[in-house]
Simulated scan of single mutants.
Amino acid sequence: MQQPIAILDSGVGGLTVAKEVLRQLPREKVIYFGDTARAPYGSRPAEEVMRFTREIVDYLAQYHPKMIVIACNTATAVALEDIRSRVNVPVVGVIRPGARAAIGRTQTGVIGVIGTEGTIRSCAYELVLKELSPHIKVISEACPAFVPLVEQGNFRSKKTLETVHRELDHLRDCQIDTLILGCTHYPFLSETISEVMGQQVTLISSADETAREISTILHDKNKLARYEELPVHQFLCSGEAGIFKHIAEQWLGEQIEQSPVVWQIPHIG
């Protein structure tokens, strides 16, 4: 019960999931790994994403996590079942929770999915959405320009607005009423994406639903933390630490103000 929840991502995107875990489960210790040195994953071959994910999971094993959260849509699409077969703790991805949330919110049955090239190429969201609701219409679009903006901390600027318009303008004529942000980096751009798509389109981030799924699994397995004191969280990145720490502190805000945090740069791969 006192073991940590390990959250991994290709970079800073998984911080959207980490924030919800810290908010919904404040007694849980979190170990976060952002593979910033090798981000983005979306344009990489599936075999490479699989190898990177295995390396990170093997590294995180030393902390004896009670759960592993793959907070990267590309890695979830490619490696979720493989990682589940390799470890003896629950492994949670971000695709199914996001798909469930979208099904619950759509009124027209027309759902858009934006994500990395790898996620869209895998058809992972479309397969889960059709499994949950066969009559849903799914319109998918890769937006490879978004992740570099987020990794640079460029959330709101003229360049960001121009990039989002360029990537999404054509989707506004598709009668989408619900849009899945199929990359955990994309919620950093949610204000701009909402501005471009219009208020009639509901944006779905898998972070909320993923945190709820984590809570449900830990409760069912009687593994929720029973810390008397607030835990010490650990945030690790494989690349340059300065911008990672700045983005993490800016995004997590009050979620880490009260809890001690350790920042590290591990060597893997």
Rank of each mutant, 00 (worst) to 15 (best):
239 G>Y: 10
29 K>V: 11
175 Q>L: 14
81 E>H: 14
118 G>T: 00
189 L>C: 06
72 C>E: 06
201 V>R: 08
169 D>M: 08
179 L>A: 03
126 E>S: 04
257 E>G: 11
48 E>N: 10
27 R>K: 12
230 L>T: 03
92 V>N: 05
204 I>N: 04
51 R>D: 12
210 T>I: 03
225 A>K: 06
208 D>F: 15
133 S>G: 04
47 E>S: 15
196 V>P: 04
8 L>Q: 03
18 A>P: 10
9 D>F: 06
192 T>L: 05
60 L>M: 15
22 L>V: 03
17 V>N: 00
141 E>S: 05
213 E>A: 12
90 P>H: 11
142 A>L: 07
246 H>L: 14
141 E>Q: 14
110 V>L: 07
116 T>M: 04
132 L>F: 13
237 C>N: 05
62 Q>N: 08
146 F>D: 00
6 A>C: 11
254 E>M: 14
229 E>L: 13
152 Q>A: 14
134 P>M: 10
268 I>V: 15
64 H>K: 15
244 F>N: 04
185 H>D: 07
119 T>H: 01
77 A>I: 01
17 V>F: 09
7 I>L: 13
7 I>R: 01
22 L>G: 00
212 R>I: 06
181 L>G: 01
182 G>P: 02
249 E>G: 05
214 I>E: 07
86 R>H: 15
261 V>W: 14
218 L>E: 05
181 L>M: 06
108 T>M: 12
170 H>K: 10
89 V>A: 02
261 V>M: 07
16 T>Y: 08
180 I>K: 02
193 I>R: 06
66 K>C: 15
196 V>Q: 07
53 T>E: 04
208 D>V: 14
190 S>N: 12
159 K>E: 12
204 I>D: 03
231 P>S: 11
21 V>C: 09
78 V>Q: 10
151 E>T: 02
197 M>P: 09
152 Q>T: 09
167 E>K: 06
243 I>R: 13
5 I>N: 05
167 E>P: 02
269 G>K: 08
11 G>V: 02
52 F>G: 01
1 M>T: 13
175 Q>N: 12
166 R>Q: 10
35 D>Q: 08
39 A>F: 04
158 K>P: 00
142 A>F: 10
128 V>A: 08
178 T>W: 12
267 H>G: 07
198 G>T: 05
157 S>Q: 03
94 V>E: 02
77 A>H: 00
175 Q>E: 09
259 S>C: 15
111 I>Y: 09
93 G>C: 12
15 L>D: 02
47 E>W: 13
156 R>H: 14
72 C>N: 07
34 G>Q: 01
246 H>G: 03
58 D>S: 12
94 V>N: 00
18 A>H: 12
251 W>A: 04
71 A>Q: 06
78 V>R: 03
1 M>W: 11
131 E>G: 09
154 N>H: 10
85 S>M: 04
207 A>Q: 13
47 E>G: 15
201 V>C: 14
140 S>E: 04
88 N>Y: 15
3 Q>H: 12
166 R>A: 14
225 A>G: 01
3 Q>T: 05
266 P>S: 11
173 D>H: 15
145 A>Y: 11
84 R>S: 05
174 C>S: 14
154 N>S: 08
225 A>Q: 02
255 Q>V: 03
257 E>M: 11
147 V>K: 03
191 E>G: 01
